[in-house]
Amino acid sequence: MGTAAQGEARSRAWRLWITSGPGLFWIVLFLLIPSGVMLGIAFFTNSDFGSPVLPLSLDSFSQVAGYGILGWSGANFTVLLRSLLQAGVATSVTILLAYPLVFFIVTRPASLRPVLLLFAIVPSWTNQVVRTYAWMELLNPFAPVSHVAQVLGIIPPHLGLMPGNFAVLVGLSYNYLPYMVVPLYAAAEKLDWTLVEAGRDLYASGARLFFNTVFPQTLPGLLSGIILVGIPAFGDYVVPQLLGGDKAMMLGSLIADQFTFSPDWPYGAALTLIMLVFTCIGLIVFRRLTQRLGGGEGAML
């Protein structure tokens, strides 16, 4: 016998399915199932043609750790460390660029701000590959910028600023700058300037004024920005592939190679898992940081 309460509960369950269903379907179909497949592949043996075959083994993981037919090599660790370092430095560069830019924009008249913000974002609407090709043109050995660098003795003659780690750093910073600008802008726009005045009133100035009054208020935005920039930069494929060359290989390229040139699917899958683990660690750490530092507000995650 259906009571009103039961009917209410049923209709609530129905509404829940209607609203969350499509998203859930999407996540299951395109994230959870492929991830599960990937996880499975990592535990298979590699065939001569790169496809996963039985028996199940942990070979791919020892490959990740650096053991191969030629004995142990630290190359994978170098790639992992380089990826972490490049992501870290690129994130720092975007922070250093975004703060002045964002505060330039928020101190303009309100009518001008959306337009200025748009200028910072619009480039990200074009394809990443196209924009990275543009950097190849700008930094290659025959480009004027490289000539200047050669003349100044910053780089040896006959070499360009590209390919290499520097070019990758430039490419990553450029690509992900908008993802730092937007959350920082959101935080800076609702900045309580009275607190800045209170800081000045209480004898703070310059850097101390910034770090005691402005910085804490923008921290939630900054943390969001770090996640939005750091994680994709860590796993980026296009930029290191086009601007990096052999000596600047990052994790994304290494993984891609296992599914194309090598090919070695179980090894590639194991690398992907390692990358996911690092990403998750990063997310958890930042989630904690956000809760601790950002007070009740939390990052937009």
Binding site: D192, T194, L195, E197, A198, G199, R200, D201, L202, Y203, A204, S205, L209, N212, T213, P216, L219, L293, G295
Partner: peptide
Amino acid sequence: VPAHQRAVNTVFQSYALFPH
């Protein structure tokens, strides 16, 4: 003399207490 060097302190209408 800039604000941070004046021996003057303000009680703001909104209090402006530092939330962090």
